[in-house]
Amino acid sequence: MRPWAARRRLDGVSVRNVLFILYDGVVALDAAGPLEVFAAANAYAAGHPPATPDGAAYRIRTASAHGRAVRTTSGLTLSPDLDLQAAPLPHTVVVPGGSTAPDGSVVPDADAVAWLRGNARRCRRIASVCTGAFLLAEAGLLNGRRATTHWSRTAELAARHPGVRVEDEPIFVRDGRVWTSAGITSGIDLALALVEEDLGRDASLTIARHLVVFLRRHGNQQQFSTQLRAQSAERPGLREVQQWIADHPDSDLGIEALARRANLSPRHFTRAFTAETGIPPGRYVDRTRLETARRLLEDSTDSIEHIARRAGYPTQEAMRRAFHRTLGLSPLQYRAKA
């Protein structure tokens, strides 16, 4: 492997080398989304001195085994810049997710895993998108670390790699120098977070606006809502109750009130709701209210008292206890991290 400073300096300005590992069956958007963020960061850096002589904040390269063209899951063919085995050591390596085997399991690319096992520990940062986490785990890079992947694969990742502390809610997780993210678009969120670490918050917000994406979703944001997490009830009456809970978290959502709305007895309602959604109605309500409060803390400047009322909590203290029980943070601490 040729020597290549992971972080070069031109006229006193840092340039970070970023390497995207490609392989047959890679998901095109897993690579293209973060790549566009880094490219946009270069455009930002060019207009915000100090900048390198050519305006670049990042040297972006793609690589595959033997430099071969790769075919993505969508049928798109990508031509990498470099032979992976000869690629200079980068500051940041990004591993996109890929296709699955006929039985639905994830099969990590052997060449990519071999490179990661031999070289990634010398990189300053390691990042994966979606099922790219399986390649990091196979290379031993996630042992003892917190990590995430697409919600449909978290159980598989945990079963295959028990040494990894898998989290199924966040859109991305940082544990030291290793970053992992969930589904396709969360790779953009992760890349924006990396750019923010390097160039500052204004850069990440400007790039997010340019790419017309949500303004820097933080890693603790959930991969999907309570409504998506639970199964949709088969009975129209129960589906209407699910929607009512989401739209009216500050209403009376006790069992008796919800049962009346479904035209069922409380006992029958509780049994039917749990059977059809996979979660008891009380827990469903608790999750919906917490989710509502989290969203309001993230997206508004309303007072904690006002948010507690809008989310359906009887008091600020009740909301604080719910946050501590589930997230280990107070509402104010959660807002500070958002």
Rank of each mutant, 00 (worst) to 15 (best):
residue 194 L to E: 01
residue 198 D to T: 09
residue 221 Q to D: 06
residue 206 T to Q: 09
residue 228 L to F: 08
residue 241 V to E: 04
residue 236 P to Y: 11
residue 236 P to G: 14
residue 268 H to M: 14
residue 218 H to L: 06
residue 262 A to G: 09
residue 211 L to K: 02
residue 236 P to D: 15
residue 228 L to H: 07
residue 226 T to Q: 13
residue 209 R to C: 06
residue 266 P to M: 02
residue 245 I to Q: 04
residue 252 D to G: 04
residue 196 E to F: 08
residue 207 I to V: 05
residue 221 Q to G: 04
residue 275 A to G: 13
residue 212 V to R: 12
residue 224 F to R: 13
residue 205 L to K: 11
residue 198 D to L: 08
residue 235 R to P: 09
residue 216 R to S: 03
residue 272 A to F: 14
residue 258 L to G: 02
residue 203 A to M: 13
residue 267 R to M: 11
residue 236 P to H: 13
residue 229 R to F: 13
residue 249 P to V: 06
residue 208 A to T: 02
residue 195 V to H: 01
residue 249 P to N: 07
residue 259 A to H: 01
residue 226 T to Y: 07
residue 214 F to W: 15
residue 258 L to V: 10
residue 236 P to V: 13
residue 261 R to Y: 09
residue 213 V to E: 00
residue 242 Q to Y: 07
residue 223 Q to S: 05
residue 229 R to N: 12
residue 207 I to P: 00
residue 231 Q to A: 14
residue 255 I to Y: 01
residue 251 S to I: 02
residue 253 L to Y: 04
residue 222 Q to C: 11
residue 267 R to F: 10
residue 227 Q to R: 08
residue 255 I to E: 03
residue 209 R to I: 04
residue 200 G to C: 08
residue 219 G to H: 01
residue 223 Q to F: 00
residue 223 Q to L: 02
residue 226 T to N: 14
residue 268 H to F: 15
residue 201 R to S: 13
residue 227 Q to L: 12
residue 228 L to K: 07
residue 273 F to A: 03
residue 274 T to P: 09
residue 209 R to G: 09
residue 242 Q to R: 10
